[in-house]
Design a protein around this nucleic acid. Sequence first.
DNA 1: TGCCAGGCCCTCTTTAGGGCCTT
Length: 204
Amino acid sequence: MTRMAVIDFETTGISPEQGARATEVAIVLVEQGRIVDRYQSLMNAGVRIPPFITQLTGISNAMVAGAPPAALVMREASHFVGEVPLVAHNASFDRKFWVGEMARAGEPAPQAFACTLLLARRLYPQAPNHKLGTLVDLHGLRRTGAAHRALADAEMAAELLLRMQHDLRQRYRLTTVDHPLLVTLQRCQRHEVHRLMAAHAQAA
DNA sequence: TGCCAGGCCCTCTTTAGGGCCTT
């Protein structure tokens, strides 16, 4: 079983500690090399969206005013994810909002996170940069919607994750690339990637 | 009104500084 849940939040700012809240969440389930399910919802956290965020994401105060309460959306998201491990691009960002919004909703958030940004820095050091859009274009992956909307960004991150799994399977002749292996890989130093993966392939 | 983060990672480093990445 190599099921993973790729998540993306749109928010009112960078830092929950500074009062930023989520405005939209999307979660894409991937399994056996493909996307198998999706969840997406705007959410109303009762805070104003700064104008430049509306310009960036297209998500307005009016849109969020008509959305379900944040706690309800997060309970649905919790049910959708279950115990499946999570993946995000720059996961330290999405993890803060996942944990913070789940706490507000009274839900546990025990899931481990893997990070496609940290993985991309190790697997594709030649990339011009490691922004999600750049990596998607670099690999000729699908863009399914407007960037900076949660579902489109989650699907792009999912396509990138699938590409990384494919590349690792090919390079090291592996049958599966699971979440614990990705977490181990993202924590190792760049110059140790090959040695670590070769040792893993040997043991597999 | 004005201000605001933090972990990773490189290097002209390690008694530090600054760019990257997310909204």
